[in-house]
Design a protein around this nucleic acid. Structure first.
Lengths: 144, 144
DNA sequence: GTGATGAGTTGGTTTTTCCAACGTACTCGG
DNA sequence: CCGAGTACGTTGGAAAAACCAACTCATCAC
């Protein structure tokens, strides 16, 4: 029956943000960088590639390019609502890195939740609100 | 002061799993594929690249290669505990894709939480257990 | 007018990825 | 025994992507 490549939301997401530097650009925007020079400096990515990634993100509606100066035309970059909805992806990656790949002096940046504690994300079930433990999630229909 | 590239857990995580096909291989293992032929068929990735990714994942302790046959030596692949801790990354990517990039006939695979509802992950704060809303997380120290 | 800043472009090199074909070691059917 | 099929890769060469340093263009600060 020679089954095919799996239709998959993970794959679709990776097509959007899976190429090198893309998620670092997004991280940078989450951290508040707006200008090309900041993005270049803080990510360390090649300028031509960063240009390409920003254009691509813009084309997919994750980022907007906003003119902030006329007389040499200058632009800055902002996440759209769609772009901001990448937050859980960035946050879970940060958490993984903090937990398993941190240097000796601990995680390089720390965040705080409004409850007062240091923020570490865990997955919860949207329906019941409970934090998910291993084995609590099962495939519902085995179409693919 | 010519500030440098940002030390960052997101960057470190991406070094581990950020190259093309890697996360699709991991997804496949989460979905239960064990053998090379399954991984190749369901991801659609080039066989040489998949070999490389599996070796790399093994080298970093995310995957183990287990011999399941002697007489031509054959191997299958399993996620380690460390590898399984990539689940939140995969799940949040799936959720993003389901939500924003799904085809007309809805998300291609569905999952169920033990509470009985269809599973959709949201981020919660590990400390207080509350689901996180926009603006509730702030940077704690602006070292980087 | 010299130098700096900001946002890119350009040209050429290096690295990755891709692809189809091949190799090896078996098993199975006839 | 012969040929086909399965499983897990490896190989060689072409194509695409990424990298890098240097350059542009416009303006401002000195």
């Amino acid at each position: 029956m020679m089954t095919q490549v799996r239709e998959c939301s993970v794959a679709r997401t990776l097509e959007l943000v899976g190429s090198k530097w893309t998620l670092l650009v997004v991280r940078e925007l989450f951290l508040g960088s707006r200008r090309f020079e900041e993005i270049a400096r803080f990510t360390g990515g090649p300028r031509d590639i960063l240009t390409d990634r920003l254009r691509r993100l813009e084309a997919h509606g994750l980022v907007t390019r906003v003119q902030y100066e006329q007389r040499p035309p200058r632009f800055e970059y902002h996440l759209t609502d769609l772009g901001r909805s990448l937050a859980p992806i960035i946050e879970t990656m940060r958490e993984f890195g903090d937990r398993h790949l941190a240097g000796e002096d601990g995680p390089p940046a720390r965040f705080e939740h409004s409850c007062g504690a240091e923020f570490h994300p865990v997955l919860a079930c949207k329906a019941c609100g409970e934090v998910v433990r291993r084995g609590e999630v099962q495939i519902a229909d085995a179409t693919t």
